[in-house]
Simulated assay, not measured.
Amino acid sequence: MKYNSLKYTLVFLSLISITLWGCLKDESFDDHEIQSVAGSGNQNVVSMALTATNTTNHLQIAFDKSDADTTFDAIPVTLAGQPATEDIQVKLVINPALLGDYNAENGTLHEEAPTSVYSVTNATGDSATGYIVTIPKGSNTGYLQLKIKPNDFLGKDYALGVQISSISPAGYLIASNLSAGILALSTKNLWDGKYTLVQKQVGWAAYGIADGETNTWPSDVSIITASAVADDINTPEGGNLQPAFTPGGGVTVFGATAPRFTFDPVTNAVVSVENTIPDDGRGRTLQLNPAVTDSRYDPATKTIYVAYIMKQNGRPDQYIYDTLTYVGPR
């Protein structure tokens, strides 16, 4: 069947609304909307919390195309509890092994960003020996600031594996679960932006899901760069969880299911759909619908057509047909 015989349109926002959360936010993190200051009852614990909702501590930042120098707070180091009573020096080291481990576990293709495409503006040291970031007296957070030219990242999948190696003066602990992370940097790819979403679902009428209806999501959604050729969907109502509808057009989301669309950069075909959330026991996976051969991005109309299947243990397949129509940049 030809997918463009179906009708649809898409939705908006950014990765923090992800699991209907209540994560603490610091105003300094708002530009990325996904960094968070980790809290703890122990005054002496220092952490490097890149994300509010990602247990792998992996942060993807995608920039608008530009050849201008861009400086930003890239990596926060945070003292839990009360503000620091003295300056605290936190040493961050670049650890390429973190990228290898992450790639192996998640099927990504991150490569270490060469030092020629970034510089550190506010810390002493270098990529070989490590960088010293200061949490100032009276504050809880210090930052490693980076300066880049976004156009240097066009078509690249650059990232940095970073970890806390030491803290000075003595008496501070490195958080065991937030001592290392991955900062992935890219320029927004062709498909990134705000979209409307029109969706048809088939197969799960018995489970309270709209069946055979075509519905329009009530808000714009965001298609967010995940790599040079892949994008995640994000809605204000459900974060990165798979959007869906109940009978009559009520909105809902599928838990433990976060779709990622991968495109062929030459043909604009959608070549895969995958679930980026680990299995919670239900065995939820996503795959392209093999009966629909034209899942694609149409550059003339800036519309994404994608037909895919959600599978779950013990249930029939849930068929999903999305039409995402570009509204503007996010």
Rank of each mutant, 00 (worst) to 15 (best):
P96K: 06
S139Q: 14
D220P: 07
N57T: 02
G212N: 06
F29D: 14
A230P: 01
R296W: 12
L15H: 12
A104S: 13
Q145D: 14
L146T: 00
I233V: 13
I164T: 06
A104R: 09
V11T: 12
D317L: 07
I16M: 14
D211L: 06
D67W: 09
T134P: 04
D280W: 01
N44S: 09
F29K: 01
Y305W: 13
E111F: 01
Y131V: 03
G283W: 09
P259M: 08
K137N: 14
T71L: 09
D26Q: 13
R282Q: 15
D126P: 02
Y319N: 12
L6M: 08
A228T: 00
A175M: 05
G193T: 01
V198E: 12
R284G: 09
G239C: 07
D294W: 04
L154T: 07
S116T: 15
L109M: 09
G250F: 04
L160P: 03
P316A: 12
V133L: 07
G203A: 05
E33A: 12
V270S: 04
M1A: 14
S17Q: 14
I277M: 06
I135E: 01
A80W: 03
Q60I: 10
S222M: 10
I135T: 05
I233N: 02
T216V: 14
I135H: 00
Y172Q: 08
S166I: 05
I132C: 03
A175T: 04
G81P: 10
N4R: 11
P218E: 04
F254S: 04
R260A: 09
I309L: 15
D232M: 06
R330P: 04
G130I: 06
N106S: 13
D157A: 03
A230C: 07
E274I: 15
A49D: 05
G130D: 05
E105M: 14
T19C: 13
T141K: 11
T257R: 08
S222A: 15
P265E: 03
R296E: 11
A128K: 12
Y319G: 04
V270Q: 01
N234E: 14
V45L: 07
Y143Q: 02
K194M: 10
I277W: 06
G314V: 01
Y8T: 15
G130L: 07
I277K: 09
V77K: 02
K302R: 15
P259Q: 05
S40N: 11
I164Y: 01
T56H: 15
A128V: 11
L20S: 13
R282G: 15
A210Y: 09
S295E: 04
K149T: 06
F63I: 03
E213F: 05
K302P: 02
T56M: 13
H58F: 12
I167G: 02
T301G: 07
A205W: 06
S66Q: 04
A159N: 05
E237Q: 14
D264Y: 05
S66V: 00
Q242P: 03
I167R: 03
A80L: 08
T108R: 07
G328N: 07
N275D: 08
I94Y: 05
L6E: 06
D264C: 01
N151L: 08
A269I: 00
L144W: 01
G193W: 00
A113C: 09
S166M: 06
K311A: 08
Y195R: 07
T196C: 04
F245R: 03
A258G: 10
G81Q: 08
